[in-house]
Simulated scan of single mutants.
Amino acid sequence: MSGKDRANINHADVATGTTQYVTVVIGGQLFGLPINQVHDVFAPESVTKVPLSPPEVAGVLNLRGRIVTAIAMRRRLHLEPLESDQTMMAVGIEYKGESYGLVIDAVGEVLNLPESSREPNPTNLDQRWAEISAGVHRLDGQLMVILDVARLLGAMMSEPLAA
Protein backbone atom coordinates (compact mmCIF):
# COMPACT_ATOMS: atom_id res chain seq x y z
CA MET A 1 0.00 0.00 0.00
CA SER A 2 1.48 3.34 -0.99
CA GLY A 3 1.64 6.41 1.22
CA LYS A 4 -0.95 8.06 -1.03
CA ASP A 5 -3.35 5.12 -0.56
CA ARG A 6 -2.73 5.24 3.20
CA ALA A 7 -3.46 8.99 3.21
CA ASN A 8 -6.71 8.34 1.34
CA ILE A 9 -7.72 5.75 3.94
CA ASN A 10 -6.92 8.19 6.76
CA HIS A 11 -8.97 10.88 5.01
CA ALA A 12 -11.87 8.46 4.57
CA ASP A 13 -11.68 7.60 8.28
CA VAL A 14 -12.22 11.24 9.25
CA ALA A 15 -15.00 11.71 6.69
CA THR A 16 -16.92 8.57 7.69
CA GLY A 17 -16.05 8.36 11.40
CA THR A 18 -14.68 4.83 10.99
CA THR A 19 -11.31 3.16 11.42
CA GLN A 20 -10.04 0.07 9.64
CA TYR A 21 -8.23 -2.46 11.83
CA VAL A 22 -6.09 -5.45 10.95
CA THR A 23 -7.07 -8.04 13.55
CA VAL A 24 -4.58 -10.43 15.12
CA VAL A 25 -4.82 -13.10 17.79
CA ILE A 26 -2.30 -13.42 20.62
CA GLY A 27 -2.92 -15.98 23.35
CA GLY A 28 -6.56 -16.38 22.35
CA GLN A 29 -7.25 -12.61 22.66
CA LEU A 30 -8.34 -10.54 19.66
CA PHE A 31 -6.30 -7.39 19.08
CA GLY A 32 -6.69 -4.70 16.43
CA LEU A 33 -4.03 -2.56 14.79
CA PRO A 34 -5.15 0.53 12.86
CA ILE A 35 -4.50 -0.39 9.23
CA ASN A 36 -2.59 2.83 8.58
CA GLN A 37 0.14 1.52 10.94
CA VAL A 38 0.48 -1.88 9.23
CA HIS A 39 2.94 -2.22 6.36
CA ASP A 40 3.12 -6.00 5.92
CA VAL A 41 1.63 -9.25 7.10
CA PHE A 42 4.05 -12.12 6.62
CA ALA A 43 5.32 -15.51 7.78
CA PRO A 44 8.99 -15.04 8.74
CA GLU A 45 11.25 -17.85 7.62
CA SER A 46 13.78 -17.39 10.40
CA VAL A 47 14.66 -15.07 13.24
CA THR A 48 18.28 -14.42 14.23
CA LYS A 49 18.78 -14.02 17.99
CA VAL A 50 20.42 -10.82 19.23
CA PRO A 51 22.65 -11.18 22.32
CA LEU A 52 21.78 -8.96 25.31
CA SER A 53 18.50 -7.77 23.79
CA PRO A 54 15.40 -7.28 25.96
CA PRO A 55 13.45 -10.54 26.47
CA GLU A 56 10.61 -9.30 24.24
CA VAL A 57 12.98 -8.97 21.28
CA ALA A 58 12.88 -12.35 19.54
CA GLY A 59 15.73 -11.21 17.28
CA VAL A 60 16.01 -9.73 13.81
CA LEU A 61 14.69 -10.94 10.49
CA ASN A 62 15.10 -10.06 6.86
CA LEU A 63 11.99 -8.64 5.20
CA ARG A 64 12.64 -8.04 1.50
CA GLY A 65 16.19 -6.87 2.16
CA ARG A 66 15.39 -4.79 5.27
CA ILE A 67 16.54 -5.76 8.75
CA VAL A 68 13.48 -5.82 11.01
CA THR A 69 13.40 -6.18 14.81
CA ALA A 70 11.09 -9.07 15.72
CA ILE A 71 9.01 -8.46 18.86
CA ALA A 72 7.67 -11.63 20.53
CA MET A 73 4.20 -10.46 21.50
CA ARG A 74 3.56 -13.49 23.70
CA ARG A 75 6.69 -12.62 25.73
CA ARG A 76 5.70 -8.94 25.77
CA LEU A 77 2.34 -9.95 27.26
CA HIS A 78 3.91 -12.51 29.67
CA LEU A 79 2.18 -15.46 27.99
CA GLU A 80 3.45 -19.00 27.41
CA PRO A 81 5.31 -19.46 24.10
CA LEU A 82 3.58 -21.02 21.11
CA GLU A 83 3.99 -24.71 20.42
CA SER A 84 7.06 -25.14 18.22
CA ASP A 85 5.06 -26.79 15.41
CA GLN A 86 2.84 -23.73 14.86
CA THR A 87 3.65 -21.40 11.95
CA MET A 88 5.08 -18.05 13.00
CA MET A 89 3.15 -15.01 11.73
CA ALA A 90 4.15 -11.36 11.96
CA VAL A 91 2.74 -7.93 11.27
CA GLY A 92 5.19 -5.31 9.97
CA ILE A 93 4.96 -1.82 11.47
CA GLU A 94 7.10 1.32 11.68
CA TYR A 95 7.87 3.21 14.88
CA LYS A 96 10.14 6.25 15.08
CA GLY A 97 11.69 5.43 11.71
CA GLU A 98 12.51 1.82 12.60
CA SER A 99 10.90 -1.35 11.21
CA TYR A 100 9.43 -3.95 13.55
CA GLY A 101 7.72 -7.29 13.08
CA LEU A 102 5.19 -8.09 15.79
CA VAL A 103 5.26 -11.89 16.09
CA ILE A 104 1.70 -13.04 16.70
CA ASP A 105 -0.32 -16.27 16.78
CA ALA A 106 -2.62 -15.57 13.83
CA VAL A 107 -3.86 -12.84 11.53
CA GLY A 108 -7.60 -12.29 11.28
CA GLU A 109 -9.45 -9.99 8.94
CA VAL A 110 -9.70 -6.28 8.26
CA LEU A 111 -12.60 -4.71 10.16
CA ASN A 112 -14.12 -1.31 9.44
CA LEU A 113 -15.46 -0.10 12.82
CA PRO A 114 -17.20 3.15 13.77
CA GLU A 115 -15.25 5.37 16.15
CA SER A 116 -18.48 5.80 18.12
CA SER A 117 -18.27 2.15 19.24
CA ARG A 118 -14.73 2.55 20.61
CA GLU A 119 -14.66 2.46 24.41
CA PRO A 120 -12.00 3.18 27.03
CA ASN A 121 -10.31 0.17 28.61
CA PRO A 122 -12.64 -1.63 31.01
CA THR A 123 -11.42 -1.58 34.62
CA ASN A 124 -11.21 -5.38 34.63
CA LEU A 125 -9.03 -5.58 31.49
CA ASP A 126 -5.90 -7.62 32.14
CA GLN A 127 -3.14 -5.18 33.12
CA ARG A 128 -0.77 -6.70 30.52
CA TRP A 129 -3.23 -5.71 27.81
CA ALA A 130 -4.30 -2.39 29.34
CA GLU A 131 -0.74 -1.04 29.33
CA ILE A 132 -0.52 -1.36 25.53
CA SER A 133 -4.15 -0.62 24.69
CA ALA A 134 -5.74 2.46 23.13
CA GLY A 135 -9.25 1.28 24.01
CA VAL A 136 -11.55 -1.55 22.99
CA HIS A 137 -14.38 -2.43 20.64
CA ARG A 138 -17.06 -4.89 21.72
CA LEU A 139 -17.81 -7.30 18.88
CA ASP A 140 -20.37 -10.12 18.80
CA GLY A 141 -19.47 -11.70 22.14
CA GLN A 142 -15.78 -10.79 21.84
CA LEU A 143 -13.64 -7.89 23.00
CA MET A 144 -11.12 -6.46 20.52
CA VAL A 145 -8.25 -4.66 22.28
CA ILE A 146 -6.79 -1.85 20.15
CA LEU A 147 -2.99 -2.02 20.16
CA ASP A 148 -1.27 1.30 20.78
CA VAL A 149 2.07 0.98 18.97
CA ALA A 150 3.64 3.94 20.81
CA ARG A 151 2.79 2.42 24.19
CA LEU A 152 3.77 -1.08 23.06
CA LEU A 153 7.20 -0.16 21.73
CA GLY A 154 7.91 3.10 23.53
CA ALA A 155 8.03 1.69 27.04
CA MET A 156 9.84 -1.46 25.95
CA MET A 157 12.54 0.31 23.94
CA SER A 158 13.21 2.92 26.66
CA GLU A 159 13.84 0.38 29.42
CA PRO A 160 17.50 0.36 30.49
CA LEU A 161 19.47 -2.85 30.05
CA ALA A 162 20.18 -4.77 33.24
CA ALA A 163 23.75 -4.45 34.47
Rank of each mutant, 00 (worst) to 15 (best):
G27V: 00
P120N: 10
R128H: 15
F42Q: 15
A106P: 03
G3P: 04
A90R: 00
M144G: 00
L52M: 11
V41G: 07
K49S: 12
K96V: 11
A70H: 02
K4D: 14
S2Y: 13
S117E: 08
Q37F: 15
P160A: 08
V68I: 09
N8C: 15
I71G: 00
N36T: 05
P44K: 02
D126E: 13
L30S: 00
G28V: 08
R118W: 12
L102Y: 01
S133T: 04
M1K: 14
V107M: 06
E83H: 04
E83W: 13
H78E: 13
T69G: 07
E56L: 06
A15M: 09
W129C: 15
E159C: 03
Y95N: 15
G59H: 02
T19P: 03
S46W: 08
I67S: 06
P120D: 02
I26R: 00
L143I: 08
P55N: 08
S117Y: 12
P122V: 11
H11Q: 12
K96D: 09
E109F: 14
D105A: 09
L52E: 08
G65S: 09
V47M: 07
D148C: 11
L153C: 11
I71H: 01
P51S: 06
V103P: 00
S158F: 07
H137C: 07
F42K: 01
E56A: 09
R75Q: 05
P55K: 10
E83M: 14
I146N: 00
V136E: 01
N8V: 12
L152M: 14
D140P: 10
V110F: 14
P122S: 09
A7V: 13
G108H: 03
G3V: 09
E131W: 11
T48M: 15
I146F: 10
W129L: 06
A43W: 08
